[in-house]
Design a protein around this nucleic acid. Structure first.
Length: 569
DNA sequence: GCCGTTTTCGGCCCGACTGTTTTCAGTCG
């Protein structure tokens, strides 16, 4: 059986959580967490590495002899004896208990020992009956927080789409800037790193009067609960259940505070370790040699003091960006203005669907050189409508509007991996985008074979939304992206990065891996209306997180180059 | 549990806030 990297990482995470609850050394716990992250971020499957005599797991950062053998065991058997032992000692339901804000592993374990709390339900019972506040180290406030927080965990636990977080962030920033004395205000954290989903919002503010800024912050309209209110740091929950944290600093610490508050945590830890090795100390107030602050006013200063160029927030995940920065090999990331067209657009698809004329007008307004109209074809029966659409496209092109409309199709990949349209028809398309919308619950080997068979078809140019995920709704298909990327390189098929904010499919890691394999990416909106052409910027966010440069993205090409590429591939 | 142009042992990022404490552990980011 082939155990995927994310499955291995999940076992390591569970071991880390159970170890932490049982009181293991913080550093031992962190070793498991680090290993989990390293395995999850790996572009090669561990299950294949362990069969390769040239590959050595101990060469991975944070993986020593012991963890290498444990990872090998998980990759082989799917589980670990240590995890099973811990499961006997520690009720796994306590992992849910630690998700309650303010309840960590130590307190959860204390409640288990004192009251026999094993999960959220038994905790709720204990809190309701007033037993929690009788335990040493607990009081009435903690008990009240548990009663309040437990429903949040049961109902919530979900992350916001980046595109949904954006208006909330804008609201908070605007509110803070309205206060006299606030010099700067910006949303940092995973929002600034442009992650596809955002857990909570972190806002950094420069204000001489920190007290006034904190007071003003908790007066933000829509605040339903104040979690913490300190002189430099406060946290609230706003109407939609989103936690917003604010941190107030002085202007001289802006850069170091912005670095610290942007994260990621793994990136920050790596930077701080690096500082220590150079005899420096990095915290949110600056970079210090002994007592002297040697940097801190700007992020550029902070990185420069460590001998590094500034690193774009999108890259700050400790996935190799620090060594790339050190070597001067950071990617020159693709930008929205590099995009020359959209290669996945639908027209006249029901009541809300945009007309061809509307879409063309909107695309021209964006300054695009081309778009591809790729209406769906799920069976041979759709061939007739497709030909009609193509005829209308021909007429638009004859008007010579300056925008080239490509005659495309989004053709269904049937269960067997064959395409829903016959070759003769496909051969007349300017661009063929293949995708799966039906029979999505296959096992991994079958689904992978199905996709790769479709990619081997000589007319297929692009594989659209390759994993089918819809954030917060639909899990990705069981498909080996590693094999799909290898096939894309072999058959010279581009992979789509679907820019719809609910999809953003493929993800950042797959983008990075595709780039490493020389596979071209198409960033496309899958727009069904003129307005949805604006999704492009979300796709660019993800592309940047995936280290993509302009040259990695197919639709940065001029029209002439694109046509040449499509004809000769 | 990992790791080493000071180290194979003794470190491991660092500070703010809360609640429960009579001086600090636990939690969080």
């Amino acid at each position: 059986m082939a155990v995927s990297n994310s499955e291995i990482a999940a076992v390591l995470d569970e071991v880390a959580a159970l170890l932490e609850i049982s009181g293991a050394s913080f550093f031992r716990v962190r070793a498991y967490e680090t290993a989990s992250r390293v395995v999850r971020d790996l572009s090669r499957p561990v299950s294949r590495m362990i069969k390769d005599p040239d590959a050595d797991l101990t060469e991975l950062p944070g993986v020593g002899k012991d963890l290498a053998s444990k990872i090998t065991e998980i990759a082989t058997t799917g589980d670990l004896p240590l995890r099973r032992e811990l499961e006997e000692q520690v009720p796994t339901g306590l992992m849910d208990v630690t998700k309650i804000a303010g309840l960590g592993p130590r307190k959860a374990y204390a409640l288990y020992l004192a009251l026999g709390v094993t999960d959220l339900d038994s905790l709720l019972e204990a809190a309701r009956s007033g037993k929690v506040k009788t335990v040493k180290g607990f009081g009435p406030k903690t008990e009240a927080n548990i009663l309040e927080g437990i429903y949040a965990v049961k109902g919530l636990g979900r992350r916001l789409l980046w595109s949904d977080a954006e208006p909330i962030a804008a609201r908070v920033v605007e509110h803070m800037k309205a206060l006299a004395g606030v010099e700067r205000a910006v949303a940092a954290g995973s929002f600034r790193r442009l992650k596809d989903t955002v857990g909570d919002l972190d806002v950094l503010v420069v204000c001489a009067d920190a007290e006034a800024a904190g007071e003003h912050f908790v007066s933000l309209p829509g605040v339903t609960r104040v979690i913490a209110r300190g002189p430099t740091r406060s946290s609230v929950v706003v109407d939609d259940g989103v936690q917003v944290d604010i941190r107030v600093v002085e202007a001289g610490s802006w850069g170091s505070a912005l670095q610290y508050f942007t994260g990621s945590q793994a990136h920050s830890i790596a930077l701080r370790s690096m500082a220590l090795r150079k005899g420096l100390k990095l915290n949110e107030y600056g970079v210090f040699r002994e007592e002297d602050r040697v940097a801190g006013e700007t992020e550029e200063d902070v990185y420069a003091s460590l001998g590094l160029p500034w690193i774009a927030p999108e890259l700050r995940e400790n996935r190799g960006e620090i060594s790339a920065a050190f070597e001067g090999s950071l990617p020159s990331l693709v930008e929205l203005r590099d995009i020359r067209g959209d290669l996945h657009v639908h027209v006249e698809t029901g009541e809300d669907g945009g007309t061809l004329a509307e879409i063309v007008k909107a695309a021209r307004r964006k300054g695009y050189l081309y778009i591809a109209v790729t209406n769906r074809a799920g069976s041979e029966a759709d061939g007739k409508a497709l030909l009609e659409t193509w005829k209308r496209i021909d007429r638009v092109n004859q008007t010579g509007s300056g925008l080239h409309v490509l005659r495309g199709v989004e053709v269904e990949i049937l269960s067997s991996g064959t395409l829903a349209l016959r070759d003769e028809l496909l051969s007349h398309a300017d661009i063929v985008v293949a995708a799966i919308h039906t029979d999505t619950r296959m096992n991994r080997p079958r689904m992978t074979r199905r996709v790769i068979k479709a990619m081997s078809h000589r007319h297929v140019d692009v594989l659209a939304h390759p994993t089918g995920r819809v954030l917060g709704e639909t899990l990705p298909y069981q498909v080996s992206m590693d094999e799909v990327i290898a096939a894309a390189a072999r058959y010279d098929v581009a992979l789509e990065l679907n820019a719809c904010p609910r999809r953003l499919d493929i993800d950042d890691l797959a983008c990075h891996s595709a780039r490493d394999h020389g596979v071209k990416i198409v960033v496309a909106t899958d727009a069904h209306s003129a307005r949805e052409l604006d999704y492009m910027r979300f796709g660019i966010h993800q592309a940047r997180r995936g280290w993509l440069e302009k040259g990695d993205v197919l639709n940065t090409m001029t029209y002439r180059s694109l046509v040449k590429y499509l004809r000769h591939r």
